[in-house]
C-alpha cells in the first residue's frame, strides 16, 4: 500500500508551549484516518502542519514521498474547515469556482456544476451563502475543496457545528462522494471530537492525549465498507466506540 502522508517524530512548540510531542503515523492510499482528542490537544495544529499552513519545530513530514511545500505548490491538498468560510459576495457556483480561478483553470467550467450535483445543491447555484443553512454551506465548502482535483482531503471538524441529524447525513454523503467514480481523493484525514463519528467514518483512528498532544494509541477500525447506518447497531462498532472512549479517559 502506498503511503500518502507520513509523519515522523513531529514536534511543535508555540514559543515555550509544547503543543505536539513526538507524533508519528502514516496515512495510506485509500484510507480514511481520523484524529481525535480532547479540546486543545493540537488536532487542528496537526492538520495544518500536514497541509503546510503551519510549520513544525522538529521531525519530518512527507507527502507522497515529497515535501509538504511541494505538495502545497502542486495543489494536492483540499481543505475543509470547521466554518464553511464561503465568500459572502460570491454565489454558490462562484464560490466553488474560486480555486479554479486562482489556479487559472477557468475553462474547466463543467466541473463546478458536476460537483453541485454530487453534493446535492444543483438547484442552489445562484444562491448566496447567507441564504443557505449551515449544512448546505458546508456542502458548498466540500465541493469547493474538490473542485481543483486534489488527492488529499484534510478536514478540520467539518461537521462539528451542525446538528446531529445533519451531521449523520453529511457523514454518509462524504463517504459516498469519496467513492464517486470521478473522485480524485485518495485519502481523507479528518479531525473530529466525536468518538462515534470517528469510528463510523474511519479505517484508522489516531487518539491524541491532552497537552502536549501525543499519539496515545492508533486504533484500527476493521468494519466493512461501504458503511451504512446499520453498522451503528453492530456489536463491533459499539465495542470500538467504547474502546476509544476508554483511551480518552
Amino acid at each position: 500500500m502506498k503511503t500518502i502522508i507520513s509523519l515522523k517524530n513531529v514536534e511543535k512548540y508555540f514559543n515555550s508551549l509544547h503543543a505536539l510531542k513526538n507524533i508519528t503515523f502514516d496515512v495510506n492510499e485509500g484510507e480514511f484516518v481520523s484524529i481525535i482528542g480532547p479540546s486543545g490537544c493540537g488536532k487542528t495544529t496537526l492538520l495544518k502542519i500536514i497541509g503546510g499552513l503551519t510549520n513544525f519545530s522538529k521531525g519530518s513530514v512527507t507527502i507522497e514521498s515529497g515535501s509538504v511545500e511541494s505538495a502545497l505548490q502542486g495543489r494536492k491538498f483540499g481543505f475543509v474547515f470547521q466554518k464553511p468560510v464561503l465568500l459572502p459576495w460570491r454565489n454558490v457556483l462562484e464560490n466553488i469556482q474560486l480555486p479554479l480561478e486562482i489556479l487559472d483553470r477557468r475553462n474547466a467550467s463543467e466541473i463546478p456544476s458536476k460537483l453541485l450535483k454530487i453534493v446535492g445543491l444543483e438547484k442552489f447555484e445562484n444562491f448566496y451563502p447567507n441564504e443557505l443553512s449551515g449544512g448546505m454551506q458546508q456542502r458548498v465548502s466540500i465541493a469547493r475543496a474538490l473542485s481543483f482535483g486534489p488527492s488529499i482531503l484534510l478536514m478540520d471538524e467539518p461537521f462539528g457545528s451542525l446538528d446531529e441529524i445533519t451531521r449523520d447525513r453529511l457523514n454518509l454523503e462524504l463517504l459516498r462522494i469519496w467513492r464517486e467514480e470521478s473522485s480524485t481523493i485518495s485519502s481523507i484525514t479528518f479531525v473530529t471530537h466525536s468518538v462515534p463519528e470517528s469510528v463510523f467514518m474511519s479505517d484508522k483512528v489516531i487518539v491524541l492525549s491532552a497537552r502536549p498532544g501525543a499519539v496515545q494509541q492508533i486504533v484500527d477500525i476493521d468494519l466493512p465498507r461501504p458503511r451504512t447506518s446499520e453498522i451503528k447497531y453492530s456489536k463491533k462498532y459499539l465495542e470500538l466506540v467504547q474502546c476509544i472512549r476508554k483511551i480518552l479517559k
Binding site: 495544518k48 497541509g51 503546510g52 499552513l53 502545497l72 505548490q73 495543489r75 491538498f77 483540499g78 481543505f79 474547515f81 470547521q82 466554518k83 468560510v85 465568500l87 459576495w89 474560486l98 480555486p99 480561478e101 486562482i102 489556479l103 481543483f148
Partner: peptide
C-alpha cells in the same frame, strides 16, 4: 481578514495579488 479565509487561500497556493483582489478588497 478571517484567519480561516486566509488559510483557505494559502491552501490553494494563492499569490499575494490574488489574495488582495479576491479576498482583501471585497
Amino acid at each position: 481578514i478571517d484567519e480561516e479565509a486566509l488559510d483557505l487561500f494559502k491552501s490553494f497556493s494563492a499569490t499575494r495579488r490574488q489574495i488582495f483582489a479576491k479576498l482583501r478588497l471585497p
